[in-house]
Amino acid sequence: MTKRQLGLSIYPDHSDFEEDKAYLTLGHKYGFTRIFMSMLEVSGSAEETKLKYQQIVDFGNELGYETIIDVSPRIFDQLNISYDDLSFFNDLHVAGIRLDQSFDGATEALLSYNPYNLIIELNASNNVDYLNNIISHQANKPFIYGCHNFYPQVGTGLPYDYFIACSKRFKKYGIHTAAFVASQVGTIGPWNVNDGLPTLEMDRRLPIEVQAKHLFGTGLIDDVIIGNAYASEDELAVLSELNRYQLEFQVVFNDEVNDIEKTIALEPQHFRRGDINETVIRSTMPRVTYRDVANQPHDNTQQFERGDVLVGNDDFGIYKNELQIVLEPHTEERKNKIGHISEDELFLLDFIKPWTKFQLTAAD
């Protein structure tokens, strides 16, 4: 599996160079390694554009970032750049270019053989045979990436099922993919409307770490990029702590939770049993590891609701100290409710399939 990255977005035509530098320095501190840079709004000459973009790209390169710059056919025309000669972008010292609009398939395939080994990143937010066409023209696949769009206008982001269908087209070929999450404080984007810049509409107002968990949790996205600038340091910090390779759910513990129950929740590597049921997600190894540890009944008489975290108590025989997460409401006095999954993350329970690995952390 490709190493998963976190990325930032920079808009040189709408931002200040010194503020951009400070943002990239902060991102570097928190382990961000990728830059999305928009060139859709340039207004100066080719030389002016080159100087403006090159200085921030070079600064990012010094910090170890990989920069991919977003371009369109209009920019090629405006700056008099030929598709047969990508030296302009090589002179910017970028790692690649993202083609915001499509060509004829043969053009994209030919671009992927550029002598500078520039990555050619395609717009992944389409569910047509665009990618198949490019691959059929014998594209240089290691240099083909896919990156979804973002959507500044509220209500216009991709619906989830469509996003999945689009993403699967790229993962079918093992192509590196990226998508966007929205900062809840960033105000800079490519246009004069900025209601956040996510790929998925359902993610727009969620905490940024939940958005990232959602994208990574699909198993179809390698890089998560914050679409709008500038995200807060708190947002960068919480993303830096995110497990990019398995879902971690935040648990709000009950006041009555005891030490063994906290240990059962927070310490093991959990995985769902392969022989699943519709009522609960079962993590059964804790009942083996902690079979000799007593666990008296408490918080065991109410109806359990979706997202409640349960541990079998002393009355549950062999199932004592088994951890469960509720999917369907039910009652069972042989189980103690020890807490519940954070409300924002409940929808992520759908990603816990047979044998899926997951972890639990204590909510702040």
Rank of each mutant, 00 (worst) to 15 (best):
K52I: 03
Y23P: 01
N127L: 05
R282C: 00
N321C: 01
D161L: 12
K3F: 13
S342N: 10
T156E: 14
G339L: 01
G186L: 06
Y130G: 07
L239C: 12
G60Y: 09
I164L: 14
F316D: 05
I325V: 11
I225E: 05
L247P: 01
E235I: 10
V311W: 00
L8S: 04
L239A: 14
V252W: 02
T156D: 13
G64C: 15
V71Y: 02
R282G: 01
G146L: 14
E248N: 06
H176T: 07
L348V: 11
E66A: 11
T199A: 06
S102R: 10
E305A: 03
N114R: 05
Y290W: 03
T263F: 01
L158S: 08
I69L: 11
N126F: 03
I341Y: 00
R291I: 00
Q78M: 10
G31D: 14
I225C: 06
R204D: 04
Y290L: 09
Q184S: 15
L79W: 05
L118K: 04
R34K: 10
N132T: 12
R306L: 11
L266M: 01
V309H: 01
R244A: 01
E41P: 02
I352T: 00
K141G: 11
F180D: 12
Q78E: 13
K172N: 15
S15H: 06
L346S: 05
D85V: 08
S72K: 01
K172L: 14
T2W: 14
V224A: 08
N127G: 11
N321E: 08
Q5G: 12
